[in-house]
Simulated assay, not measured.
Amino acid sequence: MPRTGTTSPTRRRPRVAPAITAVLAAVIGLVFFVPLWWTVVNSFRPGSETFRYLDPLQWQTFVTLTPTIENYRALLDSDLARAVGNSLLVSLVTVPSVS
């Protein structure tokens, strides 16, 4: 029989899907962010400490206690500018010839 004249309160289902989506997005974000953070932190560590705190993982794995810019000095003292220039030259020569 069809209902006429009586309205029952509609039950709302709990909205679980947005919460699951948010948690999943946070986990995926961490999967991408943690290696980038580890790389940046390690760029400020002395070379002897790079892999020191990996087994087992510790909070020092993601925070350096002895920051140094020595790695960046070594990078600037190297032939980085020449290597970048060579890469740019090869790109500029090969890309227009492909199109």
Rank of each mutant, 00 (worst) to 15 (best):
M1Q: 09
P2Q: 15
T4E: 10
T4H: 09
T4C: 09
G5R: 09
G5S: 05
T6S: 10
T6I: 13
T7N: 15
S8D: 15
T10C: 04
R11F: 01
R12A: 06
R13Q: 03
R13V: 04
R15G: 06
R15Y: 09
R15P: 05
V16W: 12
V16E: 10
V16P: 11
A17F: 11
A19F: 09
A22S: 08
A26C: 09
G29K: 03
G29M: 02
L30R: 13
L30M: 15
V31C: 12
F33C: 12
P35N: 02
L36F: 14
W37N: 08
W37T: 11
W38V: 05
T39E: 11
T39G: 11
V40K: 01
V41S: 05
N42E: 03
R45I: 08
R52L: 15
Y53A: 00
Y53Q: 00
P56F: 00
P56E: 00
T61P: 00
T61F: 01
V63K: 01
L65M: 14
I69E: 08
N71H: 01
Y72W: 06
Y72I: 01
R73G: 12
A74C: 14
L75M: 10
L76E: 05
D77I: 12
D77F: 07
D77H: 14
S78P: 11
L80R: 05
L80G: 08
L80P: 13
A81P: 00
R82Q: 15
A83W: 14
V84D: 07
V90R: 04
V90T: 06
L92I: 05
L92S: 12
T94M: 12
T94E: 07
V95C: 05
P96A: 14
S97L: 15
S99Q: 10
